[in-house]
């Protein structure tokens, strides 16, 4: 898929673990893992908002469009 999820990059920048983020955004580890590994087919605005709030970033920092 041409949309790349850079969640792991942002987590590394903020030095935040998956467990910590899971608690902050109130998402299960399984769902966060789906998002992190790029298996997700869609992301809710509410989830994106919670992640951006927890990582103090913009949606563009997490999602990136690449031509393939």
């Amino acid at each position: 898929m041409p949309i790349v999820v850079n969640l792991d990059v942002m987590m590394a920048k903020r030095k935040m673990s998956l467990n910590e983020l899971s608690e902050k955004v109130d998402l299960t580890l399984a769902n966060l893992s789906i998002l992190k590994t790029g298996k997700a087919k869609a992301i809710r605005f509410s989830t994106l908002e919670a992640i951006c709030k927890a990582l103090d970033c913009q949606p563009g920092d997490i999602l990136e469009y690449t031509k393939k």
Partner: peptide, 8 residues
């Protein structure tokens, strides 16, 4: 169903 399961 798959799409729904993979919506985060």
């Amino acid at each position: 169903q798959t799409e729904n399961e993979l919506t985060v």
